[in-house]
Design a protein around this nucleic acid. Structure first.
Lengths: 214, 214
DNA sequence: AACAGAATAAAACAAACGTTTATTTAATTC
DNA sequence: GAATTAAATAAACGTTTGTTTTATTCTGTT
């Protein structure tokens, strides 16, 4: 046998990506074999190499596109001419929504950094840093305007990101809480954590904004 | 050659554990080969099997002892007849100190759960749940006594643990911040996050307690 | 109808994997 | 000082790994 009826390169590549993210999230990059991946896709192992030159290329592609998607999602969600509290609210809501929707890809991006070559690791970390810098900017603006009470901007940003990304560890869709409820609670915790003092009525706006997005 | 001069079973086993934690934290459990581990210890691969019957046994032993150590540390640090705020403060300080001191083992315990057999995974998760239950108890007591403002006890506990454990991702000893400074800041963030309303003078006690431990 | 090339299968590659076996040497015991 | 136990080596086991090579089949275009 060789080329099978109805086979299409684009569909095959999409199937490979999807299966790879799923298997890597479940078993880890090292533990997933190319044969296992091929079987999941319904193809021979050699066929994978038409789409991705090496296993590491596959990993890197998935990670890069995950990060690009995250940054792009924030560029779209990012409010203009908004108060630090509103911007922080938008950041939290976007971060949680994006990561819950992409649980598997997030797991891979967070756990498999060590399987990248040094140069590729640097590229991914650069993207990550750029994304985190946005949060630090919001926190700094809020602190300077005396809207937030923050000891250390960098440390607070890291704490918030760890807290928010941690959602994917325990959150299961369709269980006790909805995404909207989780987002609302995380928003409240975030605002308290940064000691937000909001103008009258702003809390309602922030709340509504979060409900809308979640 | 065979038995080498000055060789000692206990020393070798300790060296294996140490090297294994280090290599697993750096490269991951799957990526670390038994030959690589043996080379790090300065021994042949077969010698490892005198101490650990399989690679997974080695992983499980490291994880179990890490969790046992964490629970034991909390049993020792846990204050009696203390307010929820003081108990929460002790929990945070103990958690951060323990995890910073054991960066590598924490990484392994958090990242390599999927490499355990189902039964062993269950055993580790049971220990983890028991430890987290302590935090939920503190939060519940504080909420019932109207000292904390908490939407959802379980969710808040997970958020706090993710935030605190996240320290090991970015913290490097001897850089910008000391362990004491980090602990103080995390304590302040935690107290704000749970909306702690402390009695007059208690904030100082909590602060001093944290400084003492850190 | 012929053709170009994309897509895949099948088989094989060398290297590395966790683990086992048989053996040898060092330290301890009687 | 002989017997025994503990600690390690050297070599090999069968399997699996990521990857390459080669050949074949199907699809879309002319």
């Amino acid at each position: 046998m060789a080329r099978t009826t109805g086979s299409d390169g684009e569909k095959t590549e999409a199937a490979i990506r999807e299966a790879a993210v799923s298997l890597m999230a479940r078993f880890g990059y090292e533990a997933m074999s190319m044969r296992q991946l091929a079987a999941e896709v319904g193809v021979q192992a050699a066929a994978l190499y038409r789409y991705f030159p090496t296993k590491e290329d596959l990993l890197f592609t998935l990670m890069r596109e995950h990060m690009e998607g995250l940054i792009q999602a924030w560029e779209s969600a990012k409010p203009v001419n908004a108060s630090p509290a509103q911007r922080l609210s938008a950041y939290v809501a976007n971060h949680i929504a994006f990561h819950i929707e992409r649980r598997n890809a997030t797991h891979v991006s967070n756990m498999e950094l060590r399987s990248l070559s040094p140069e590729r690791l640097t590229r991914i970390l650069r993207m990550r840093t750029a994304y985190e810098k946005e949060l630090r900017g919001i926190l700094r603006d809020g602190a300077e305007a005396d809207i937030f009470s923050i000891d250390d901007t960098g440390l607070t940003a890291m704490a918030l990101i760890q807290m928010m990304t941690g959602v994917i560890v325990w959150f299961r869709p369709g269980e006790r809480l909805s995404i909207a409820e989780v987002t609302t609670t995380y928003l409240a915790m975030t605002m308290r954590l940064v000691g937000a003092r909001m103008a009258t009525g702003e809390a309602r706006h922030v709340h509504e904004h979060a409900q809308l997005r979640a």
